[in-house]
Design a binder for these strands. Structure first.
Lengths: 101, 101, 101, 101
DNA sequence: ACCGAAGTTGTATCAC
DNA sequence: GTGATACAACTTCGGT
């Protein structure tokens, strides 16, 4: 049961010169760096899209639409009817159980 | 596989006397009320603390301190602390990843 | 004090032919539809990026990297960046507080 | 128009020995420290209350209550009737404007 | 499959 | 009133 996974045991710091990281092979370190870079690149993309969304909402707001309501619309359209009904029923139930609003 | 959770299913209002549902047992209704009360009490506490904070900032402002700067200092100090915590957690994680200490 | 914002007030459904309200002008309705579409398109993009991220993590995991550690590293690096930004902002604030540079 | 506010102009660093902070008088520095401490103390309180809340919800969940619904209940009770009605009306309006769900 | 934790999103408050 | 910031809620993900 050989173990070549990057984070597993294997010995460390042969010398005090090394501040860190000789638990990982050179290859694994490079690979790790690549992975982190890909992730951070994707997070940038994500932020960009999020920003675009913000802009659309801002623009809509500028034209007089109510952003809060727009968001609710989008959310409701995403949610299926059954779930919605069920949730409303539970709310009513709880409310009446504690004696109304 | 008994089910004694407050909702389950079961039908409602056997009699018109009850404005509220009795899908929840009397006990569950009481319990629910208690929970809601505790929550609402805690939210009051929370509001009180928030108010105290506002007052401290207002007082500081009255003495000529720049609130925006104050907030930023507090924020940076919080970030410091958080980062330290995260770093410690990372170390623990590394340690466990290589098979405990 | 003209009001050309999409909602305002005004009454509804002059005729039973219309299932929907005509409180919104035809133009506003079209605009609204366009906005919703743009939003939903962007949410698709967002989901796609999120999916790519998941894949990178999954792949890394397949190579033996610990996902939790990876995430923490990314998180700490993000905090670093944020902290640096905050610190620069603080300096600017200090500078303006003492009357510019 | 004398200016004795802590953050205002006044000259600085007479010597390179001082890394910082002689823009503020000794008294102001002490005062600043006190303020920061009070703020951080209050933030601890705030965190404690938030934690208590979490516990109440967790406990309720343990007894079979649906946390999501509990939160909605609390929110609804806080929100006044008028607002709620208005919001629902707007949602219906928008929905019908774009031709239903 | 569930549970707890983390991240993300939406909302409200506050200062300008 | 608008933007920033802080708060709270909901969803997702990884682990068990």
């Amino acid at each position: 049961m050989a173990d070549d996974s990057p984070f597993s045991s294997a010995a460390s710091s042969s010398s005090p010169t090394h501040t860190s990281d000789d638990v990982l092979t050179q290859a694994a370190q490079t690979r790790l760096r690549t992975i982190i870079e890909r992730i951070e690149r994707l997070e940038l993309d994500k932020a960009a899209v999020a920003n675009d969304l913000k802009e659309v909402y801002a623009e809509a707001k500028g034209e007089g639409f109510d952003v809060k309501i727009l968001r609710k619309i989008v959310r409701i359209r995403k949610m299926d009817a059954a779930k919605r009904t069920e949730e409303e029923a539970l709310i009513d139930l709880y409310l009446s159980a504690i004696g109304g609003l």
